[in-house]
Structure formats: C-alpha cells, structure tokens
Amino acid sequence: MRKFKDHLLRGCLWASAFLTVAVLIIIVGYIFYKGFRLIDFNFIFGDYSPVGHGGIWPMIVTTLYTIFISLIIATPIGILAAVYLQEYAKQGRLVRLIRYATESLTGIPSIIYGLFGAVFFVTTLKFGMSIIAASLTLTIIVLPVIIRTTEEALKTVPQSYREGSLALGTTKLQTLYKVILPSAMPGILSGIILSIGRIVGESAAIFLTAGTVAAMPDGIFSSARTLTVHSFLVTQESGDIELAAAVGIVLIVIILILNFLATFISKRLNKADY
C-alpha cells in the first residue's frame, strides 16, 4: 500500500513537471511560430502605419524612453535608500516603517499604480497622458526592486571591508564609494537589469498613464505606446494575433538578452576578484 502511494506520488511529480514544461514550451513556441514571418528589418525599424502590420519602431523608442527615464530616477534613489537602510540607519521604528512601505509597494498590483498615476501625474501634476507620466509611475514600481536587490548586495559585502577602511582613517562616505559600493556592484547591476525586465513587461500601469497613441513620440510629454501595450491593443482591437505574436517575439528576445546580461555580469564580476 505504501509502495503504491509512493509510486502514485512519484508519477504525479513527473506528470506535473511534464505539464509545466509542455505548456510553457507550447506558449513560447506558438508565439514564435505565429509571429516569426512578420519579423524583418522594416517591421522592427519601420514607422508605424495603420494599414497592414505596420512597423514597431515608435513602440521600441517609447519603450526605451520609459526604461531610460524611470531608471535614471529610480536607480540613484533606490541605491541611496538601500545604503541608508543597510549602512546608516539604526535599527528601529523608522527603519521598520521604511521596510514595511517598500514591501507593501511590491505587493500593489500594477492596475492600482495605473490609477494612481492617472490621477496624480496625469491630472494633478498636469503631465497629461504622456511618456513622463508613465515613466514616473514605473519609477515607483521598480523602486522597491532596486532597493531590495541593492540591500541584498550590500549585505554580502564583508563587514571586514568596512572596518578595514574605517580603521585607515577614512570617512564613512569614502568607505562607501571606494570599497562598499564597488564590491556590491554586481548585485546592484542585476537589480537594475531585473527592473528593466519589469518595465518592459509592464502593461496596465502604462496603459492608464501613457495612453495609446501609435506614433513616434515628439518628446517625453507626448502620449505613446510601448511594445506590451501595442501587443495588447492589436489583439484586443483587431484580433491580429500574428502581429501581437511578432511583437511578443521582440519582447521575449529583449527579456532573453536581459537575463543573459544579468547572469553574465554577476558571474563575470564575481569570478574576477576585483
């Protein structure tokens, strides 16, 4: 009887794993199968046109804009916040409050971020539906990611580095930027790359804050469409699965490259001993 149960459970384990892998392969496979015919130079680098499948260059540019703006704000703030939490703060109420807030931010669904962005950045601050409104919303979304990964990275810096540097009569600030931050750099970089993935994959929050204009943005104050929103809209509005899948391929390739970069950086920088 016990043997039978063991066999049954073992069978379930194999079956589940097979199912998971099969489903995921089917999804990715389907997207590549459906979309690859559309991928060519003109599709990627061409301007959008409502007739046919149109180019997606404006969406790529918009996506790059959102990545660039949100990271340029979130990265320094996130790193310094993590430095405060790990290196400066005395453990106590304030730190607990900050940690609690950071954790809570991670748990908020992106549609709520979208609501907030739509009323705060779009309406109250009068940015309108725009790349900047979306980017600022995304900044708040990725801030906890950067804070957490940087904190983890700072935790791995041996205490002896700090003591060694301070004992040589350096200031805390000198120790921070000469010894601690360089040692934590691989971890921090992986965090930033993780954030890029999050930004690229985000849709609901951007949908409500950047709008859906399918054209090359004039600047950061114009409304525009990111790749994910484009993929969503062509599916919803015209049922153009082929186009949505082609955009999907671009997205998956971007995620692949980012993942590869993250692994490469952490491996490379950890192996080299300085």
Binding site: Y161, S165, T170, P182
Partner: peptide, 25 residues
C-alpha cells in the same frame, strides 16, 4: 584613526590590487 592604525584578526584586504590596497589610505 590615521594616528592609530589597526590590523584585524583575519586579513581584510579590499578586492583591489596590492598597490591600490596600500595606497588606499
């Protein structure tokens, strides 16, 4: 701390070159 130097229990050189470690202070 510049007047009173310290050597620790375990060697705690920074992940830099030998030269940069000594020139650090």
């Amino acid at each position: 701390r510049t007047k009173v130097g310290m050597v620790f229990q375990k060697p705690n050189l920074f992940p830099m070159s030998i030269y940069d470690n000594v020139a650090y202070g």
